[in-house]
Nucleic acid binder design. Structure first.
Length: 547
RNA sequence: GCCCCCGUAGCUCAGCGGACAGAGCAGGCGCCUUCUAAGCGCUUGGUCGCAGGUUCGAUUCCUGCCGGGGGCACCA
């Protein structure tokens, strides 16, 4: 019996009690079961009686007693108790809980998925670092989180487009080109320019591809640096992210929006809707009509559009490509973007609550020193991977709630000890793989019809209960846009496995025949291995067979 | 001044309205002739920043303070 099956059984018990007049009221909108922290409270607990009590006009414990009586008749339920203020605590029969192992093994790689978002098309944009410098660790957080989120939302049945937006049309590109030219000439970068080794590297690559470039006129040289320099940065960024295991379905260039006239059309659409006015020689959007704290310029007095026009055109483009929901992950310095973008979308006549979701996460810092892109001594994603590797890099960035600033301790994440959470989880998987190899070497195979009711040791039932939770963890993490929940769950699961391993011998000792309990435990072990592998896979972290 | 995020054990953090608030680390004491000791067990440690409100029930939701971080461009 899965948690979802239990929910159905509880609903049926409530419905029957309502139908025959034992209870007054109506079915609650949502019936929840959760695993109690205290094992004495059974395998599952529900608060449904407390929710029903008011409408039923009876004390919660009385309501609970009525529902509990019906639940006791359900196959697979061993005992039902009413406890505390009105909780109904349910314990499953060992065989019913043990079936979880079979369910997991049969589903294999598909275990953990759900159909909650079937039919929905999501456009998920993240990283979108400007092509004026390498990917640094603040971007890396969105690479890790965004990629994990895309996997979780996919696992919930939605169609996801993973998208990267290159801001290759703004004034920062002019500064970048000027910085490249200065570097090529061996001069100091201009004020507000970019510095760092990569600037000289890229400049040298451009010069190598265009001999005589420095003898050309400054305008021509700048144009070349601008074009080729940006292309080279695109390549470097994609290469770094690919090494990190992060690839996108669409790399979108801002300049295409300008070149195609999409920006002008977007502005015209707003003008037609009556939200545009002119002042001080510039064109403004009245975003205050939609809750923004001040109106925004969309076309500067010099005729150049601001990034708002491009952002709006980009949003329209995503919607036209079929996205029901546009999700954008951004750093904390962009939180002002939220109100403006909502204003823009509302100006189109759409409800931003339905189609736009902007997720603001906090900073990543390293040994107290905050990353600053212009400072020149940035810590890049490549350097992070060099020091702690891809798996630890991804895991360390995805393990925290997005609202929490991260202070990465590189020494910890580079270590191969139990303090390092990624190694703790991966080690559990490696141990399980080793166990499977040893079983095979002994000629022991899982039978087709295990007696899973033998999995009755407290550490076995705790492990089974956690395995049964996995699909709900995945669904919840996807819904709440919180991949860290999967990481925390895996750490918990790894701990439960290590404790099981410590207490329950799986393989027979020498001269002992393989017993049916060995068979059942091999099913449990394989189920655990599958969940660890699937969970790590959703975070984009490897599940090694040996360590 | 306005806006966003945070405040939970010595440290780093988890807890989408429920039972005695949890984990890891750090400190203390134990467990390897048997499946990976990169592991496990026991143990010390809390006015969930403060004050109100909503609720049968608040660490969780709302308001106001206090403290910390980050934003408020015709830069992106």
């Amino acid at each position: 019996m899965t948690p979802d099956d239990l929910v159905d059984a509880i609903k049926a018990a409530v419905a029957a009690s309502l139908a025959d007049g034992a209870l007054a009221g109506t079915m609650p909108d949502e019936v929840m079961v959760e695993r109690p922290r205290n094992p004495e409270h059974g395998d599952y607990a529900t608060n449904v009686a407390m929710r029903l009590a008011k409408a039923a006009g009876r004390p919660p414990r009385d309501v609970a007693a009525i529902i509990a009586e019906r639940l006791r008749q359900v196959d697979g339920i061993a005992s039902v108790d009413v406890a505390g203020p009105g909780f109904i605590n349910v314990s499953l029969a060992a065989a019913s809980l043990g079936e979880t192992a079979r369910i997991v093994v049969r589903a294999g790689e598909a275990y953990g998925g759900n159909g909650n978002l079937v039919g929905e098309t999501v456009n998920l944009e993240y990283v979108s670092a400007n092509p004026t410098g390498p990917v640094h660790i603040a971007h890396a957080r969105w690479a890790a989180v965004g990629d994990a989120l895309s996997r979780l939302i996919s696992a919930s049945g939605a169609k996801v487009t993973r998208e990267y937006y290159f801001n290759d049309a703004g004034s920062q590109i002019d500064r970048f080109a000027a910085s490249l030219l200065a570097a090529a000439r061996g001069e100091e970068p201009p004020a507000d320019g970019y510095q760092g080794e990569y600037v000289a590297d890229v400049a040298a690559d451009v010069v190598q591809a265009h001999p005589g470039l420095l003898e050309a006129g400054a305008d021509e040289a700048l144009a070349t640096f601008r074009h080729d320099g940006v292309e080279l940065m695109f390549d470097r960024i994609k290469q770094t992210l690919h090494r990190f295991g992060v690839d996108f379905d669409v790399y979108f260039n801002e300049r295409d929006l300008h070149a195609s006239g999409a920006v002008d059309r977007a502005v015209e659409r707003l003008r037609a809707a009556g939200h545009v006015f002119e002042a001080d020689g510039a064109v403004w959007l009245r975003t205050t009509d939609f809750g923004d704290d001040k109106d925004r310029v969309i076309v500067r007095s010099n005729g150049q559009p601001t990034y708002f026009g491009a952002d709006l055109a980009y949003y329209i483009d995503k919607r036209n490509r079929g996205a029901d929901r546009v999700i954008i992950l951004l750093g904390p310095d962009h939180h002002g973007y939220f109100g403006r973008m909502r204003g823009l979308v509302a100006g189109l006549g759409e409800n931003p609550d339905d189609s736009l979701e902007i997720i603001i996460g906090q900073l990543v810092s390293l040994r107290g020193g905050r990353m600053s892109k212009r400072a020149g001594n940035l810590v890049t994603l490549d350097e992070l991977m060099d020091v702690i590797g891809v798996d630890a890099g991804r895991y360390s960035l995805v393990r925290w709630a997005m609202d929490s600033p991260i202070d990465l301790d590189l020494d910890l994440w580079a270590s191969r000890t139990q303090d390092n959470p990624v190694f703790y989880v991966q080690y559990a998987h490696a141990r399980l793989s080793s166990l499977a190899r040893n079983a095979a070497a002994l000629g022991i195979e899982r039978s087709a019809d295990p007696d899973l009711g033998l999995l009755a040791h407290p550490r076995e039932t705790a492990l089974l209960g956690a395995l049964a939770e996995f699909p709900r963890v995945v669904a919840g993490a996807a819904e709440l846009r919180a991949p860290h929940r999967v990481a925390r769950y895996l750490e918990e699961l790894a701990g439960l496995y290590h404790r099981f391993y410590d207490a329950c011998r799986v393989l027979p000792l020498a001269d002992e025949p393989g017993a049916s309990v060995t068979d059942a435990r091999l099913w449990l072990c394989e189920a655990t291995r599958i969940v660890l592998a699937n969970g790590l896979g959703m975070l984009g972290v490897g599940a090694p067979d040996r360590m």
